[in-house]
Design a protein around this nucleic acid. Structure first.
Lengths: 215, 215
DNA sequence: TGTACATCAGTGAACGCGCGTTCACTGATGTAC
DNA sequence: TGTACATCAGTGAACGCGCGTTCACTGATGTAC
């Protein structure tokens, strides 16, 4: 019972922070969370290990006990970004009716919500600086995001030309649209309204319900 | 005649470089060109004023005579990037048949060629770090790129929902596809083949030839 | 339950580095006369 | 055509800054007995 109490305290780091200056509790997670906050206020270029450590209230040497280097922390932040990304897409789907088109529109709504709410994080996870294939966690989280998109596209008949045509087409469309929205905001800071995404989403032929089982 | 000779020599800086260590000829253009080269080998994060100056073979204080600061040089590089971008799209169109669909496909081919050949430059011109509205030259060059896309889309009937639906849809599609290609290359360095862009380009209704005159 | 001790997760000082920017300077250019 | 001079476009030294990383250290934690 005493052990349980201790373990519970260690899982709620902010409360114990002031009591034990030498043990944060869950510094690793706190660093990732702080990194995301800084990313959102200062952008990718403004992100540094020292800033992150300062934000958590820890010496700038502390992160070295949890991450092999700056890039490792960046990768962990990107992995967390993919988790949020996937969660928003999933929520978008779950809030939609079972109709395939609504499911797809819901997924895309989640996609766009992520891009808009987490602009710099969105930029980071698709940036050249992050190589997804080099890290297990990042590869897994990014694969899950793609998997969800793939599953949703599987509600429709694929093109006769290419099995993956739906995924690629939808991904291109929604990703490009998200970038365009962010970029337009950069060009005209007054934030002019743009065409709602639904209007450019093409009509696809829903798959027969049992066709999915067959294959 | 003597004056003409002098002016001609000043337009060909590399030749005169070794002769006059105190006057480069066209350092401004040389810095932009060198910046693009470094961008392509070291990426955005690896771009610095000192590296650019070193590549041109000039002291690192020299750029200050031509650009107000690092950001001004970045903006000039981005503007040059947009010029190349527009040129490639235009070339894509010009190499295509007059058929509207071929024109559009040609434009997109140029778009994708730019993204692939100038990966970091492509990333730069659409990055958060560059604010297009803040600089005349950048605003103009980026507007020209968009204008060309708009003109090409004007070959087709707009959607009844929104006057700009074609532009936005095509831009989203080709931009997203370009990003996906670059990103896929990052994920699987073996460079797996992807679906050709033509297969996801939707069918649009060409405008009546004289309908454009009417409006 | 109490004590000795290994391990863990922090500290803070120090390191060298590359960066953008500033500055007094100087040599070449081009112009006025 | 020749000379005096202002302007232009470089140099190189110096500045301070923030960065990632390393290091010896220390206090707290948790375990063995």
């Amino acid at each position: 019972m005493k052990l349980d109490t201790v373990k519970f305290k260690r899982d709620t780091p902010p409360m114990t922070r002031q009591n034990s200056p030498h043990h944060h509790g869950d510094l690793r997670a706190a660093l990732i969370a702080a990194g995301i906050k800084i990313l959102e206020s200062d952008g990718i270029a403004g992100l540094s290990l020292r800033k992150i450590a300062a934000r958590v209230g820890v010496s700038h040497a502390a992160p070295a006990h949890h991450f092999k280097g700056k890039n490792a922390l960046l990768v962990a932040i990107a992995a967390q970004g993919f988790r949020t990304f996937t969660a928003l897409m999933r929520a978008g789907r779950e809030n939609a009716s079972p109709d395939p088109h609504d499911q797809l529109a819901g997924l895309c709504r989640g996609y766009l919500e992520f891009a808009e709410k987490h602009e710099a994080l969105f930029e980071l996870i698709f940036s050249t600086g992050i190589k997804a294939h080099a890290d297990d966690e990042l590869r897994e989280t990014s694969t899950q995001a793609y998997q969800l998109l793939e599953d949703t596209c599987a509600l429709f008949e694929p093109s006769p030309h290419h099995e993956k045509s739906n995924e690629i087409m939808i991904w291109s469309l929604v990703h490009g649209y998200a970038t365009l929205r962010v970029y337009n905001k950069l060009m005209s800071p007054d934030g002019e309204t743009v065409l709602p995404f639904e209007f450019i989403l093409p009509h696809l032929t829903p798959r027969e319900p049992h066709a999915a089982d067959k294959n």
